[in-house]
Amino acid sequence: MSLGPLRLRCLILLTLALVACAPAADEATLDNATVSIVIPYRPGGGFDRTVRAFAPYFAKQLGDGVTVLPENVPGAGGRRGAATVYRARPDGKTLGIFNMPGFVPPEILGEKVDYDLRELSWIGRLESQDYVLLISATSELQDLQGVRAAAELAFLSTGYGSSVLAASQIVAGQLGLSDREPIYLAGYAGTADYLVGLIRGDGNVALGPVSTSLKYIESGDLRPLAVTGDGSSLPGVPTFTELGYPDLAALDLQRSIAGPPGMDAQLLVTLREAFLRAVADPEFIKTARNARLDLSPLDGAATAAEVAQSFTYYAAFKTNLTNPNAL
């Protein structure tokens, strides 16, 4: 075999390799509907799990031949995925799951983001869960009064820009701890990581989403002091409102679905109705229960109103939300 033609073939194949790497062009037809739900994080996390559990039931309600495809678009702490949905054509084929209120503080603090959450076409809320204030079972602190009187406080959380750090800062502010300069030991990779850090004694207090924290409470490793929300989601644990901090009741975590701005009104109605039917499907409810989702469905209009409320709520705490560990 001579080398000449082989070298040419080598170059042709290389060109084909590059072509293969180019993203496929959008399907132009509306009938052949494959609906992507953009997950702005890598596979394996809570948002990924929620979408993968929900997708088949949503597809069933959208009609025959419709496929719902979970699509991970990680990057820039979720901002890349959010921007992908915001910029997509409003044809109903690109939707996304949003970390609320996690995406709100960057907009309030005036950071450059390529989307406006208030302009999105909200389809509905899937999950919502309250926070619980936790200490280690071996901690010397006994209750919320003890936390307020502690000589040193170190809050554990994920990194700057996460809902948990923002919520911890708001709690510290409301409890009157700000001038005592608590330490914010941020940067843990996930909720389980900082809760184990709390068990280990890296710090002495942390705010955890109720469902993730529950297993550490049941195993006797962590002690709950107070929960957010209007009624206690943990039997026997007082709410912040009952303890005299009503402004903390509204702190929670939501996972809501939205499409790009400017969606056709009829299309939005179709998507919202399919969403409501899917979340009421007994089979989905069973799957959600097995997957430990904190199912708390809300229709599209109410979800849009909730997003607007989050902006008002977090704007009131703007001064608490700057990065405590900024260099």
Binding site: P43, G44, R52, A189, A192, K215, E218, D221, R292
Partner: peptide, 27 residues
């Protein structure tokens, strides 16, 4: 034991366990 993934595969495997109602953790 704690639901902290030791590797990328474990992170997604953790998701599989939770989807099937098995909640990794101290219990």
């Amino acid at each position: 034991a704690f639901g902290i993934p030791g590797s990328a595969e474990m992170a997604i495997f953790l998701g599989v366990l939770i989807l099937h109602g098995i909640d990794p953790g101290p219990m």
